[in-house]
């Protein structure tokens, strides 16, 4: 588990133009961000482009990180996810969701759940996810953790598209109510 403090410190140094800090930040964060990008893009070459774009952007705009907002790793993960989703929208995805790798979902991967439990916010999210009906929780996890589209979730859960869309919407509302508005 990455501790947020050193990451934030590195990010602040990167914001002051320290290239050594950028290298250190890369060593610490890149395996994590690359893993995220691979899950969403499902293509190593696009995932590499995502991580490259993220680090280039971070080198130029590390100042835009707001420590009051949350951990530096969470910030990096958010911009990585956004970039991965943007690039995935433009590239044709050739890898199906139903490959062997997607057997490792958060709800069937004890390690991932353990990592989720490493922080207070993670424990709250886990509790709220566990409070969802099974189908809703799986839809959310597939979408967020595996970058699945509505269509892919529907195929995976063998359910009609409209049903899946409404599960996702209802799950989001429940999660928001469970986690709070702040």
């Amino acid at each position: 588990m990455l501790t947020p403090e050193p990451t934030a410190g590195l990010l602040l140094a990167v914001g002051r133009g320290d290239r050594d800090a950028l290298a250190a930040l890369y060593r610490e964060a890149a395996p994590h961000l690359f893993a995220l990008a691979v899950r969403i893009t499902r293509q190593s070459s696009i995932a590499e482009e995502v991580v490259q774009d993220v680090f280039v952007a971070v080198a130029r705009k590390a100042q835009s990180y707001d420590p009051s907002r949350g951990t530096a790793m969470a910030w990096l993960a958010t911009i990585t996810r956004n970039r991965a989703l943007d690039l995935t929208a433009r590239a044709r995805r050739t890898t199906a969701l139903d490959d062997a790798r997607t057997g490792r979902l958060v709800d069937s991967d004890p390690d991932a759940f353990e990592r989720l439990a490493a922080t207070e916010a993670g424990r709250r999210l886990r509790a709220c996810l566990e409070a969802l009906p099974e189908t809703q929780r799986r839809a959310i996890v597939l979408a967020f953790f595996d970058g699945a589209t509505h269509e892919e979730v529907a195929a995976r859960l063998a359910s009609p598209l409209g049903t899946v869309k409404s599960w996702v919407r209802r799950a989001l509302i429940r999660l928001r109510d469970c986690l709070g508005h702040d």
């Binding site: 990455l2 290298a23 890369y26 890149a30 395996p31 994590h32 690359f34 893993a35 995220l36 691979v38 899950r39 190593s44 995932a47 590499e48 991580v51 490259q52 680090f55 280039v56 080198a59 907002r69 949350g70 951990t71 790793m73 969470a74 993960a77 958010t78 996810r81 490792r104 958060v106 991967d109 390690d111 991932a112 759940f113 990592r115 989720l116 922080t119 916010a121 993670g122 709250r124 999210l125 886990r126 996890v141 967020f144 953790f145 999660l175 928001r176 986690l179």
Partner: peptide
């Protein structure tokens, strides 16, 4: 913010060695 912990729960994967030089 709500979903951030889930984004951090992915098992790390080492990127190719060529990525840092490219950056």
């Amino acid at each position: 913010d709500r979903f951030a912990p889930l984004g951090l729960a992915v098992a790390p994967v080492a990127p190719p060695a060529t990525l840092w030089p490219a950056i």
